[in-house]
Write a protein that binds this DNA or RNA. Structure first.
Length: 292
DNA sequence: CTCCAGGGATGAT
DNA sequence: ATCATCCATGGA
């Protein structure tokens, strides 16, 4: 199996894959196994280089957005202590370029779910409905096509632990399979029109739409506001004020974080999730109260 | 056990 | 426009 070597400066593979933007890469040997579209591969990082088995250099460079001017993007963040801490914590984190359908479908399943469980759902869908690919001794599955999911049923999908999200995923898959919704064409739309099209899909609201606009349509200004980001903005930028409404948060985010707001958001999200006591596995209690 | 999670849709003020 | 409620499931 051929190994290719790719220079990758200002990039941290592990941080990027653990930052809650993509959910199917799995730790393997000293790196990660996953798929870029239909291409199965293994990637490991050694310093400022990537070693890749199973993929081409252009494909990998594009997926991991190695062409983003990361230093320049980070310099464009607001110059405040909150962003400085996040920037320092998230060195090498890149907002990657994901396939549109895969990204949309995955974030439809993400509502009111922890990252660990989104991973679980993603793998269940892939194993059950996705085309199998082998790389060495590893078997992987592509994300299922809209056509394949459209041909299932809600009760089938619920077997993947989707809960109430099954209905939305099915309905959206059917809109895309029928050609009524054309994700690829929507790339030509303005931000407002694109958001409108996405929000018209079942299970897609402002948050999921912004995730897709950021992670799959490469619009780095899009600023998804989830519970973590809402909490962070409220605690760090609205100190002493009454709890801001959703509209207030959105207006603030759009005006304050600017052209690379999506990147700033991803840095704030990862920093908050990994440093808050909620985000990490708590240390086991040495002295636990006696049970019963 | 309880609390909460990268929310969205719907219906009532 | 803002708010309440419901929707499943599992991690911590």
């Amino acid at each position: 199996l051929r190994t290719i070597d790719i220079p990758a400066h200002d990039f941290d593979l592990a941080v990027t894959l653990d930052s809650g933007q993509v959910f199917h890469w799995q730790k393997h040997r000293d790196g990660f196994a996953g798929m870029i579209g239909d291409c199965a591969m293994y990637v490991e990082q050694a310093g400022t280089r990537l070693r890749v088995e199973g993929g081409s250099a252009p494909l990998v460079r594009n997926y991991f957005a190695l062409d983003h001017p990361l230093a320049k993007i980070c310099r464009s963040f607001p110059d405040d202590a909150v962003m400085k801490a996040a920037r320092n914590f998230c060195r090498g984190l890149r907002v990657i370029r994901q396939p549109k359908w895969e990204c949309l479908a995955t974030f439809i399943t993400s509502s009111m779910k922890q990252v660990a469980h989104i991973r679980q759902i993603s793998h269940a869908l892939r194993r059950r409905y996705g085309g199998a690919k082998k790389i060495g001794d590893l078997e992987m599955h592509a994300f299922p096509t809209p056509e394949r999911l459209a041909a299932t049923s809600e009760s089938e999908l619920r077997k993947c632990a989707l809960g109430y999200r099954a209905k939305n995923l099915l309905a959206t898959a059917q809109l895309i399979a029928s050609g009524e919704a054309e994700l690829e064409q929507w790339g030509a739309l303005s931000d407002v029109d694109l958001r409108g099209k996405l929000c018209a899909l079942p299970g897609v609201g402002a948050k999921v739409a912004n995730c897709v606009i950021l992670f799959a349509y490469e619009r780095l200004r899009a600023f998804p506001i989830d519970v973590w980001i809402a909490r962070t903005l409220t605690e760090k930028y609205f100190t002493g004020k009454r709890k801001p409404t959703e509209a207030k948060l959105r207006a603030f985010a759009e005006s304050y974080f600017g052209e690379n707001g999506g990147y700033a958001q991803q840095y704030l999200f990862h920093h908050a999730r990994k440093t808050s006591s909620r985000g990490r596995t708590p240390r086991p209690r040495k002295l636990s109260a006696p049970r019963r």
